[in-house]
Computed example of a mutant assay.
Amino acid sequence: MKQLLILHAGQTEAGHTYALAQSARTGAAALADEVATVMLPALQADLPDLLAAQGLLLVTPEKFGYMAGALKDFFDRTFYPAQGKIAGLPYALVVVGGNDGSGAVMAVERIARGYPLKAIAEPLVVKGAPTKAQLQQACELGEAMAGGIAMGIF
C-alpha cells in the first residue's frame, strides 16, 4: 500500500504544531483504503520511514526564525543515506510561525532542493494559534496529498 508520512516537530501533543499535523492526518484518512498515513514525531522518524513513503508532509514550528531542531535533526540523519533513493518525492510544508515563518520556510525549501524533493503546494504558514479555517486548510492539504499519491499524480 502507498504511504504518506507526516512528520511533526512540535514539543507536545497539546500544541499548535500537533493540532495542524493531526488535521492533515484526518484529511488523509479520507483515502485510508488506498493510502496508509503514518504520523510520527520528527525525532522518532528514520530513514526506513522516509524510504517507505510516497509523500511527505512536514509540520514544524518556527524557532528563532528557523525550523524546529527536531526537523533539522531528521534531515541531518537522513540526508546522505537517502541520496539517490527519493529524488522527486512529493512534499508539502506547514509552519507554525511566531514571526512570519519565512525563515523556516526558506530553510526547509533549501534542504528539500538538496534531496531533491518536489513541492506540491505552497507552504501553509500559520501565525500563532491556528484558526478553524487554518485547521481546515491543513486537513485539505492532507487529503490532497493522499489523493495525489493514490492517483499517481505526484
Rank of each mutant, 00 (worst) to 15 (best):
M1N: 12
Q3P: 09
L4F: 08
L4Y: 08
L5A: 03
I6C: 00
H8L: 08
H8W: 12
H8S: 09
G10N: 02
G10V: 02
G10W: 01
Q11S: 12
T12W: 09
E13K: 14
G15Q: 09
G15D: 11
H16N: 15
T17Y: 01
Y18R: 07
Q22R: 10
A24F: 06
A28D: 00
A29L: 06
L31N: 12
A32S: 14
D33E: 14
D33K: 13
V35N: 04
V35R: 03
A36C: 13
V38R: 02
M39C: 03
L43V: 15
A45Q: 13
D49H: 15
A52Q: 11
A52H: 06
A52W: 05
A53L: 09
G55Y: 03
L58P: 01
V59C: 13
K63A: 15
G65S: 09
G65M: 08
Y66A: 15
M67E: 08
A68E: 11
A68V: 10
G69I: 03
A70K: 12
A70V: 12
K72T: 11
K72N: 13
K72E: 12
D73R: 11
F75W: 11
F75Q: 08
F75H: 10
R77G: 02
T78R: 01
T78E: 05
P81M: 05
A82G: 07
Q83C: 11
G84L: 05
I86P: 00
A87L: 07
G88Y: 07
P90T: 03
P90Y: 03
Y91N: 07
L93W: 00
V94W: 00
V96M: 04
G98S: 08
G98C: 04
D100M: 10
D100L: 10
G101I: 04
G101P: 03
G101Y: 01
S102V: 14
S102C: 11
G103C: 08
G103Y: 07
V105Y: 03
M106K: 15
A107Q: 14
A107W: 06
R110V: 13
A112C: 04
R113G: 15
R113A: 15
R113F: 14
G114M: 14
G114E: 15
G114C: 14
Y115K: 01
P116W: 12
L117D: 01
L117V: 02
K118H: 14
I120F: 08
A121G: 11
E122V: 05
P123V: 02
V125M: 02
V125H: 00
K127W: 05
G128M: 04
A129G: 03
T131I: 12
Q134R: 08
L135V: 05
Q136S: 14
Q137T: 11
Q137W: 04
A138G: 11
C139A: 13
G142H: 05
E143N: 11
A144K: 08
G147D: 05
G147E: 06
G148I: 05
A150H: 04
M151E: 15
G152V: 06
G152H: 06
I153T: 11
